[in-house]
C-alpha cells in the first residue's frame, strides 16, 4: 500500500489539432501520497475532470506520464487498483443495489470470481450504509442512495485508489453534507487514497488533507493547500475559525484575475 503513490509528471493534454487545438492541461506535476484525501478544486473548464480521467488511465495524456507506485497507470488498472465514481450514479435500472455494486468487479474477474464478487459487493454496500437496501432497484433509491451504490460499486473492487468526479454535485445541500460525512467515515475506515474532484470550496475543506487549486486556460495547479483541521470532522468544523480562513484563502485563489 505504501508504494501506491500517484505521480503525474509533465502531463500535457491537448484536444483537437491545428488552429482549433485547445490545451486543456499544461505541463502539470502532481504527487499524491498513499492514503491521502486529495481534492482537485477549480472552476468548470479547468481540466480537473480530464486530469482525473488521465490519473485513472481512461485518457492518455498528449505528453508526460502518470505513475502509480512507480508503474504505468495501465498496470494499476489491470490490477483493479483504481476505482472510479462518476458524476452520475449510472446504475443498471434492472439490477438490484447488490448486483449493481458487484457489476464492475464481476466484469473484471469473470465468472470464476462469482462468490467473491457477491461477498465483496455485500461488504461494500455495508460500508456505504446500504446493507438493508441490497434488494432494491435503482428507481426505489433516492439520489443520495444511488450515488452510494455507485461508490460501493467502486469499493467492491477493493482498489487502493478511489477517483471521484464531482459525485455529489447533483445532490441537495443537506444530502450532500450527509454524503460528505459518510465518505470521510469510509475513507477513515478503509485507508484508501481518494482523489476527489469538486468545485465546492466547503466540500473540499471538509473532506481533504490536501487541496490542489486548479486554474483554467490552460489547466494547471496554481496552489496546493494542506488542510490541518482535526479529524474526525463533523459539521461543527464549519464553525471553526480555521475553516473560515481556509475558505477565504481558497475563494481568493479561485476568483478570476482582473483582465489586464
Amino acid at each position: 500500500m505504501q508504494s501506491r503513490q500517484i505521480s503525474a509528471e509533465g502531463v500535457r493534454m491537448r484536444f483537437g489539432s491545428g488552429s482549433a487545438a485547445q490545451t486543456v492541461l499544461d505541463d502539470l506535476d502532481l504527487t499524491i501520497r498513499p492514503g491521502g484525501f486529495v481534492t482537485l478544486l477549480g472552476p468548470s473548464g479547468c481540466g480537473k475532470s480530464t486530469l482525473l480521467k488521465i490519473l485513472g488511465g481512461i485518457l492518455e495524456p498528449t505528453s508526460g506520464r502518470v505513475l502509480i507506485g512507480g508503474r504505468p497507470v495501465r498496470d494499476a488498472v489491470g490490477d483493479r487498483q483504481i476505482g472510479l465514481v462518476p458524476q452520475r450514479p449510472a446504475l443498471l435500472p434492472w439490477k438490484t443495489a447488490l448486483e449493481n455494486a458487484g457489476l464492475l468487479r464481476q466484469i473484471a474477474t469473470g465468472a470464476r470470481g462469482r462468490t467473491e464478487t457477491a461477498q465483496a459487493a455485500e461488504r461494500a454496500l455495508a460500508l456505504v450504509g446500504l446493507a438493508d437496501a441490497r434488494g432494491k432497484l435503482p428507481h426505489q433509491l433516492s439520489g443520495g442512495m444511488a450515488q452510494r451504490v455507485s461508490i460501493a460499486r467502486a469499493l467492491a473492487m477493493d482498489p487502493a485508489i478511489l477517483l471521484m468526479d464531482e459525485p455529489f454535485g447533483a445532490l441537495d445541500a443537506i444530502t450532500r453534507d450527509e454524503m460528505n460525512e459518510k465518505l470521510a467515515e469510509i475513507w477513515a475506515a478503509t485507508g484508501k487514497t481518494i482523489v476527489f474532484v469538486t468545485h465546492s470550496i466547503s466540500e473540499a475543506i471538509f473532506l481533504s488533507d490536501t487541496v490542489h487549486v486548479m486554474g483554467a486556460d490552460p489547466g494547471r495547479v496554481v496552489e496546493t493547500l494542506d488542510i490541518e483541521l482535526a479529524r474526525p470532522r463533523t459539521r461543527e468544523v464549519f464553525a471553526d475559525p480555521l475553516f473560515a480562513s481556509y475558505s477565504g484563502r481558497l475563494r481568493s485563489l479561485l476568483e478570476p484575475k482582473a483582465a489586464v
Binding site: I58, G78, I82, L84, P86, L92, L104, I107, A108
Partner: peptide, 22 residues
C-alpha cells in the same frame, strides 16, 4: 449512459460484454 460505458471500459469489458450486459 456515457459514464457507465467509461466504467465498463475501465475494468476491461469487451464490446460483446457491453453489448449483452448493458
Amino acid at each position: 449512459d456515457s459514464d457507465l460505458l467509461l466504467l465498463m471500459r475501465s475494468v476491461g469489458a469487451t464490446r460483446n460484454q457491453i453489448l449483452l450486459r448493458v
